[in-house]
């Protein structure tokens, strides 16, 4: 009966501390993501040059007035390529996240609600898939099936499905044991009704937290696959591929590598900050 004063909410210290920090993180991260989204949509209007236009006379130009971020081995404008590179990542990540979260939620909810044999089978399969980190699974599938946006999206989504399904299943199991679900069973509610009307509304926080965290992971994975040469065809301005292509010239033209690298970093960090801020907000009591 006598809980600590903090638990009683007399001292809203935790929520205030995180809240103050999370507001800044949310603003900074959100602005960055928004900026990259705008760039992904409108880069043809923003880029000073055509990102694939080769200019043999200005190879390896250092950053300067003509080319703010210099040029690469073919004389292509680094800034323009960096801006153009935002689009492929921001195509893959939201799609893969949405697909993976949706599938994972369905699988986790069903396994958690129905339990028994359904749950057992689903968990065994998930256990086997989880053995492979996203990247290793992706290498296996994408390399073999041939590179395509669809393959990248599908393999990332599949990997997320297992992660999301495990979290949602765990949350569902917690809810399923609660008295309000038992009360519904006492009234004779059907399992589907239990799942959708009683349990689902109470695992949405978990789903949202998963979705925001997975979005960052999706960008991470897409960029890495592109770096490994499993993204779009050679020559595309994709960030990961640019880092990979230009690393041979690291000694003479580090800007060609740093620009896309920092672009990736800024987007993933922004996503992580937003995800963290939202998580602490949603999970606050």
């Amino acid at each position: 009966m006598t809980t600590s004063v903090i638990a009683k909410g007399i001292v809203p210290r935790i929520s205030r501390g995180v809240g103050g920090r999370s507001r800044v993180a949310l603003a900074v991260g959100g602005t960055l993501i928004l900026a990259w989204a705008v760039i992904a949509l409108f880069w043809p209007h923003l880029a000073p040059y055509d990102p694939v236009h080769q200019d043999p006379l200005h190879r390896f130009a250092p950053p300067g007035p003509g080319h703010w971020l210099g040029t690469d081995q073919f004389g292509r404008d680094t800034l323009s390529r960096m801006l153009a590179g935002a689009r492929p990542v921001l195509q893959v990540a939201p799609l893969a996240t949405a697909l993976g979260t949706l599938a994972g939620t369905v699988v986790g909810l069903v396994a958690g609600t129905f339990g028994g044999l359904v749950d057992e089978v689903v968990m065994r399969v998930l256990d086997a898939i989880v053995v492979f980190p996203t990247i290793i699974a992706a290498v296996l599938f994408v390399a073999l099936s041939g590179r395509s946006v669809t393959a990248v999206v599908l393999v990332i989504a599949a990997s997320f499905t297992t992660i999301v399904a495990r979290s949602v299943r765990a949350a569902t199991l917690v809810e399923r044991e609660k008295a309000y679900v038992e009360a519904a069973r006492l009234r004779g509610e059907r399992s589907w009704s239990l799942m959708l009307r009683e349990i689902l509304p109470n695992v949405t926080t978990t789903v949202l937290v998963e979705a925001t965290s997975r979005f960052g992971d999706a960008i991470f994975a897409a960029a890495t696959l592109s770096f490994l040469g499993l993204g779009q065809p050679p020559g595309s301005p994709e960030w990961g591929a640019s880092v990979s292509d230009n690393r041979t010239w690291l000694q003479i033209a580090p800007w060609t590598v740093l620009a896309p690298a920092l672009a990736i970093a800024s987007l993933v960090v922004a996503t992580a900050l937003v995800a963290d801020a939202l998580r602490s907000r949603w999970e606050a009591p």
Partner: peptide, 29 residues
């Protein structure tokens, strides 16, 4: 046969309003 549970925080669906809780019970019972 109906039941009243021990932990008040777990015995009601936190996402529902009081009206929804009672209406759902009335419908299924």
């Amino acid at each position: 046969v109906q039941m009243v549970f021990q932990n008040p925080d777990a015995s009601l669906n936190p996402s529902h309003t009081v009206r929804t809780v009672l209406a759902r019970a009335r419908r299924s019972l």
